[in-house]
């Protein structure tokens, strides 16, 4: 019980003092997971849309592949990325292991399938006659796609939020490929694990709290955008 009280007190103190070490970790978390979320959206949304609106060979296989990706255990992704990026692994010459970039790669592999799958669902759940109608009214394929994306934006934004949430909460894979290096690859989740290992529960609780606040702020911004978009379109 004392830990919780002390931890909360300490967390508030660190936040109010804007402790530079803590801010650095929080900022790095936002950079790494923000970039991973962006890449996941750039890859995932078009893939989801294509799967929903196009018919091509291997589409069924790709849909099931993306859906499996949603349930992909992060620790397997971490292991896979480690093996690829090892100094003597296939991509070892890039010297990416234990850098923020390795963490971005791992988080993209984890988050992109989620974004793709949720985007797919968002567009598929639109009225199935809508694309046909758009095409019949003389829209080109790309114009029709743009209108479909606009129609499905609530669901697509949910996909973006889920992707960011998944990336920012990743700990096992981030630890494995990032190495939890101070000032370099130490993010809020891995810092929390580290401080628990060191027995600094107050600091661990404050990292946990800051992570919650960070996720809340990002999701709040996205939600405001989502709701604003909804009003603009009705």
């Amino acid at each position: 019980m004392t830990y919780i009280g002390q931890g909360l007190g300490e967390a508030v103190r660190l936040l109010l003092q804007l402790d530079p070490a803590v801010l650095k970790v929080a900022w790095l978390t936002l950079q790494v997971s923000g970039l991973a979320a962006l890449i996941s959206v750039v890859l995932g949304v078009p893939l989801g849309c294509a799967l929903a609106t196009r018919r091509f060979r291997g589409r069924g296989a790709l849909v099931s592949f993306v859906n499996v990706g949603m349930g992909m255990p992060p620790v397997v992704v971490g292991l896979l990325v480690s093996l690829l990026l090892w100094r003597y692994g296939p991509l070892g010459d890039w010297q990416l292991l234990y850098t923020p970039w390795a963490m971005v790669i791992a988080q993209v592999l984890i988050a992109a399938p989620i974004v793709a799958s949720l985007s797919f669902s968002a567009i598929v759940s639109l009225d199935e006659r809508l694309p046909l109608q758009l095409l019949a009214l003389g829209a080109s394929r790309l114009q029709a796609d743009r209108l479909l994306i606009k129609e499905a934006k609530l669901g697509l934004l949910a996909a973006v939020i889920a992707g960011f949430g998944r990336a920012v909460s990743e700990v096992g894979a981030s630890m494995m490929v990032g190495g939890n290096l101070k000032d370099e690859t130490r993010v809020l989740t891995t810092a929390t694990v580290l401080e628990v290992g060191k027995g600094n529960y107050e600091l661990a609780i404050s990292f946990g709290l800051i992570l919650l606040v960070l996720v809340y702020l990002v999701v709040a911004v996205l939600t405001v955008l989502q709701q604003a978009g909804k009003r603009g379109c009705s």
Binding site: W27, L30, Q31, V32, G34, A37, L38
Partner: peptide, 8 residues
Amino acid sequence: CLAGALLL
């Protein structure tokens, strides 16, 4: 996100 990327 881009701002993040550049800083990174």
